[in-house]
C-alpha cells in the first residue's frame, strides 16, 4: 500500500519542500493557522514537531519554540487533536518529529496507533538510532506509519545499508555535524553523503538541518535530493512575529514560496 508520503514523491517528479513547524507554537489556534498558510503557499509535506523538554538534537531556535509551545499547554493529546483538525482540511502528508520519551510514555504502540488514527503519515524520533529502532519500526508497521530514519555524515557504509533496510517513506539525511539551526554554507561532505545514499536506495533522500536559502535548496536539488527540509528558518519567523504580537503567516508564506521556486528550477 502506498502511503501519502510515498505518493507525494512519486507524483511530484521534482524535489519536494518539507516545512517544519512546532505544534502549539505560539498557541494551538495559531499553529493551525500557520499550517494552513504552509499548505496554501505550496508546501509539499509538513513536519510537525512535538516538543520535548530536553531536545538535544535541536539548536536554540527550535528549543525556544518548543518551550513556547509547552508553555502554551501543548502535550501529546493536544498534538493528536491538532493533527485531526489539520487532516479535516487537507490531504497533505503529515510527519511527526519528536523525541523517544514522548513516544515511550504514551506506549510505543499506542503512540503510533493514535498518530495514524489522527491522520499522521510518518514519524521521526530524533534520539532513536538503528540500535533502538526495532520496537518503533514494528509499531509503525502495524499502524501503517512510515518510520523515517536518519543517516548522518558519521554513519558508516555498513550502517547506511542497515538503516536503508528498515526505512520507509524517505531517508532523512542529517546535512550538518551538529544540531538544527540555519548555516551559511552547505558542506561538500553533505553533498557527498547525499550522493552515497542515493546510489544505495530507491527511497527518496531528503536533507534537513541548516537549510534556509534559495541557494541551499538549488544546490541540494542539483545534487539529486528528492526534497529539502526547512526547519529553523521557518520556526524563527514564528518567534520573531510572536515577540511583536503579529501574525507570522505572511512571512512564512513568502519564505516557502521563495524556496519552492528554487526547488523547481531544475
Amino acid at each position: 500500500m502506498s502511503s501519502r508520503i510515498t505518493g507525494a514523491f512519486c507524483a511530484a517528479g521534482r524535489p519536494l519542500l518539507v516545512a517544519c513547524t512546532v505544534a502549539g507554537d505560539p498557541s494551538f489556534d495559531e499553529s493551525i493557522s500557520i499550517i494552513r498558510e504552509l499548505v496554501c503557499s505550496g508546501t509539499d509535506i509538513i513536519e510537525i514537531v512535538m516538543p520535548f523538554s530536553d531536545p538535544v538534537a535541536d539548536g536554540p531556535v527550535i528549543q525556544q519554540a518548543g518551550a513556547r509551545a509547552l508553555a502554551s499547554g501543548m502535550n501529546t493529546d493536544r498534538l493528536f487533536e491538532l493533527i485531526r483538525e489539520v487532516r479535516k482540511e487537507t490531504e497533505i502528508p503529515l510527519l511527526i518529529m519528536t523525541y523517544a520519551n514522548i513516544v515511550v510514555q504514551r506506549g510505543i504502540e499506542e503512540f503510533y496507533r493514535d498518530a495514524a488514527r489522527a491522520g499522521a503519515d510518518g514519524i521521526v524520533v530524533a534520539d532513536v538510532p538503528l540500535e533502538e529502532a526495532d520496537p518503533f519500526c514494528a509499531a509503525a508497521g502495524s499502524a501503517g506509519i512510515d518510520p523515517i530514519l536518519f543517516v548522518s555524515q558519521t554513519t558508516s557504509p555498513e550502517r547506511i545499508e542497515k538503516i536503508l533496510s528498515k526505512a520507509s517513506g524517505f531517508v532523512y539525511l542529517v546535512a550538518v555535524m551538529g544540531v538544527t539551526g540555519t548555516r551559511e554554507e552547505i558542506s561538500p561532505e553533505a553533498i557527498a553523503l547525499l550522493k552515497t545514499v542515493k546510489e544505495r536506495t530507491s527511497l527518496p533522500v531528503v536533507p534537513g538541518f541548516g537549510i534556509s536559502t534559495p541557494e541551499h535548496v538549488r544546490r541540494y536539488a542539483q545534487a539529486g535530493a528528492d526534497g529539502v527540509i526547512i526547519g529553523s528558518a521557518l520556526v524563527r519567523i514564528v518567534g520573531e512575529y510572536t515577540s511583536r504580537k503579529a501574525g507570522a503567516e505572511s512571512g512564512i508564506g513568502a519564505l516557502v514560496k521563495g524556496l519552492k521556486i528554487s526547488a523547481h528550477e531544475n
Binding site: V56, D127, P129, V174
Partner: peptide, 12 residues
Amino acid sequence: GGQFVPESLMGA
C-alpha cells in the same frame, strides 16, 4: 540503559 542518541553520535 541503551543508546537513545541522535544518529550523528553513534559513530562516537
